[in-house]
Amino acid sequence: MNEYTIHQAKMLPLDRANVDTDQIIPKQFLKSIKKSGFGPNLFDSWRYLDTGYPGQDNSIRPLNNEFVMNKKKFLGSEVLIAKDNFGCGSSREHAVWALQDSGIKSVIAPSFADIFFNNCFKNGLLAIEVSDEVINKLFELSESENIVNIDLENQALLDINEKLICNFEIEPFRKKCVLEGLDDIGISLQYSQEIKAFEEGLKQKSPWIFR
């Protein structure tokens, strides 16, 4: 989990709509039973010129120099900016793990797919929804100084001179999760009595559910 208040970062501009989780992390890498190690295969089929498979030495693979991730200017970026409906498709949380494993701390887009959006906050990856106007402004900035400041506490995006670009909305609990790294299961287990009581009622009413 990140603990950040004002975070200054380089942006990685991915000028595409409907980026699906199959692109973020292709299926052949989902065979792992761990949460780490997905980074080198983030956007695998766009990033390399050959076919990727698990366990290979990624450092010797031919890079697609046209792809934004491989351009010198964008190396070490921590904020991914993209277009509408980012993260659509499969529910694979591996997509979030791959982004984080590559050093991405935040994704900014005009809209996100629901499951991906949820998965982000379960892992402390800050997903920020902004207007089309703001995303266009960020894409412009990525062509010049390529710096954005994220002030999560005050829910604001600022430029390199700390001038306000926009404020953004975030559910208070999600904000807290990113800022403090809360134990979601632990919080829900505080409701154990309520869950048990609900379950007892359900057992009387619809016993077939308990088979």
């Binding site: 529910s91 949820n118 979601d184 299961i185 409701y191």
Partner: peptide, 12 residues
């Protein structure tokens, strides 16, 4: 759901 939610449902 995602994997974190799978774990959440298993536990709660």
């Amino acid at each position: 759901i995602g994997t974190s939610e799978v774990e959440h449902v298993l536990a709660t």
